[in-house]
Design a protein around this nucleic acid. Structure first.
Lengths: 367, 367
DNA sequence: TTGTAGGCGTTATCAA
DNA sequence: TTGATAACGCCTACAA
């Protein structure tokens, strides 16, 4: 048996490690037991109205707030969700994930790996903090994914290639979207393609370009020029220069793994190389960042439903936290083609028709 | 007295709330006491080499990781740093803060208020999690700031107007930078200014525009046109239209509280209103976002040393955590003028000189 | 509905 | 250097 507090409370000023306000203090002031206080802070617990009021008043008076660490120790719930996100994954996803996690009464504990090899260090911290689950928008090795299973920590992969059907994942069908993009560009008459690769550790960009290459091959188009990139603005500019050097001519269409690179490519092509876009060359991105819609870019790109995906990830994780034995699932979303002004996407025929309609609208032509 | 574990370990499979691996399990396997295990995980504790090895081997064997919640309970250190950041503050700041916090052996617990009134809710959660300190890139009321002092939780304001000298803050001298911008624009001959305001809850944007207005007044220039904005792309476009309607003419120079709005203004002016920039009108932003440097914008703007500021914030907070009674300090940084291509910043004289030099360089003129 | 008592997993203290 | 023991602050049967 142990005495709740050695010093009842008032004469506790001499202690060095400055005492915090605890539920015992509140109980003392309210004239109830400590467990009564505890129950008052648990939604749906059985407490009389009178007790509840007295306790809450005392709590307010003392600025009492329950200690999450102590609670998590006994309940085995930290209400913490680890979010592992490499900076390349885009700020919109992070903001949206944070919001969704908060809505479900949990908090995002942020892990931002800068290099691949940091991931093991990060994981060991993840375990320490006893997170209830993890949403990972970073590339985990199979060994790392296996650790989650062994420790029984629910994991949801976000927008990353899932390692087999045993892993929970929310993904956008990048390959399908890229295939669609190639098909549309090909229909419109583009034949010589070029690809500016995204960063190696960005699985979604890799998926997109893989899909594009396959579709190009299927359609029997010329072998595309491919250059590496890091997904940043400079990569786009350097990329288009390298492509032209490689092909010995300007390609018909350039597809970039990342929008920012696509904008870099677009700007360099227009302002430094003097290439008419979309007249002479088409440029397309793949992830519809905010800037892609700006008037000076109007980039043709692929929009992923990030909000819905974040919501799905949070839902999926919540479910797993409440029922760790739920069957793993993959939720697949489709990207949507954003028809900007950097690529001709219409077939020659439909373009004629559109032109005629436009002229007709201005009264210049009668159909 | 209490027995470490009711069930020694092997036959513990029947328990429902599935036991975790604890330091007791490691101790049992290594044949030492539990406190010996604890000491092995504390850097600089006095343990014999032999014991250390045995314990570590057992720990690896059992996948043991210390429980941060239990540790934080007794040490009163959670190693958690609350980061309160409104989405408007920019992703670069968040990434940099996260990195700096990690480098100091702590973790960022993310709080992203979407509306002002959410802040009180957020703070009550901050207290629950027993964070060691908070970096706030959001506007806190004086009452809210006072709560930090009362609870003795170190607080560092990041890029937000400090509430008096008693608050720790890392700020960039926005007003001074804006004054410089106005001065340079005025020297170059711009007289009629217009301002597109940032969001109300974005104190740095407010500071910048305040500085600009004061300098405009000091120089005896015409009263500037001022329109409200939210700091987003659309605000820039709407803003410039409203300004022209208000003035009845195109202003000489537009200064925007946020770069993204400035780009919106620039694009709309160029592509929709057909205004020659910088010939007919100057456009300037204030926070040097990544896109401002792109070739299609080349925005004249003000660069804040975000990396240094994040480092300073993390340093300051670390110091406060180790010594809560340290005197509060403000660390002030200066913004740097980025001379883009959206504003003439040279005086008429120097422009002539520059022109002559340029022509001379091409052999078209001899000085 | 309320109080008692034990335990969550760790670190800190102190004697051996 | 090591081990026993007492916190840390809370939740939760169980009994009243």
């Amino acid at each position: 048996m142990r005495k709740p507090r050695p010093t009842p409370a008032p004469p506790a000023a001499a202690k060095r490690p400055e005492r915090r306000v605890t539920s015992y203090d509140v109980a003392l002031l309210a004239g109830v037991s400590q467990s009564a206080v505890s129950r008052c802070f648990k939604p749906g617990a059985s407490v009389s109205k009178a007790t509840h009021e007295r306790v809450m008043k005392a709590a307010r008076c003392l600025d009492y707030i329950p200690n999450a660490a102590a609670r998590s120790l006994i309940t085995r719930r930290s209400n913490l969700v680890g979010v592992i996100i490499s900076s390349l994954a885009g700020p919109e996803a992070l903001a949206e994930l944070s919001r969704q996690i908060t809505q479900r009464g949990k908090r995002a504990l942020l892990f931002t790996p800068t290099r691949e090899n940091e991931l093991d260090t990060i994981l060991s911290e993840v375990w320490q903090y006893q997170v209830d689950g993890v949403i990972a928008a970073a590339s985990l090795s199979e060994r790392q994914v296996a650790q989650f299973a062994r420790r029984r920590v629910p994991l949801v992969m976000f927008n990353r290639g899932a390692h087999g059907p045993a892993v929970n994942a929310v993904v956008c069908d990048q390959a399908a979207a890229a295939r669609l993009l190639v098909s549309r560009l090909a229909e419109a008459g583009h034949r010589q393609f070029a690809l500016i690769d995204g960063p190696q550790d960005c699985a979604d960009a890799q998926q997109r370009l893989l899909g594009a290459r396959m579709r190009i091959a299927e359609l029997g188009l010329p072998v595309p020029a491919v250059v590496d990139g890091h997904g940043d603005y400079a990569s786009g500019g350097n990329g288009i220069r390298a492509i032209i050097a490689q092909l010995g001519r300007v390609p018909d269409a350039v597809i970039c793994g990342k929008d920012v690179a696509a904008i870099g490519c677009l700007d360099t092509a227009r302002h430094e190389l003097g290439i008419n876009i979309p007249g002479k060359m088409a440029v397309a991105g793949c992830d519809a960042v905010e800037a892609s819609a700006w008037l000076s870019h109007k980039l043709t790109t692929l929009r992923q439903p990030i909000q819905k995906m974040a919501q799905a990830a949070a839902d999926l994780l919540s479910g797993l936290i409440d029922n760790r034995d739920a069957a793993p699932q993959q939720r697949l979303f489709n990207a949507q083609l954003v028809e900007g002004a950097t690529a001709r996407l219409d077939t020659p025929d439909s373009r004629d028709l559109a032109l005629r309609l436009a002229l007709n609208k201005h009264g210049l032509l009668t159909i």
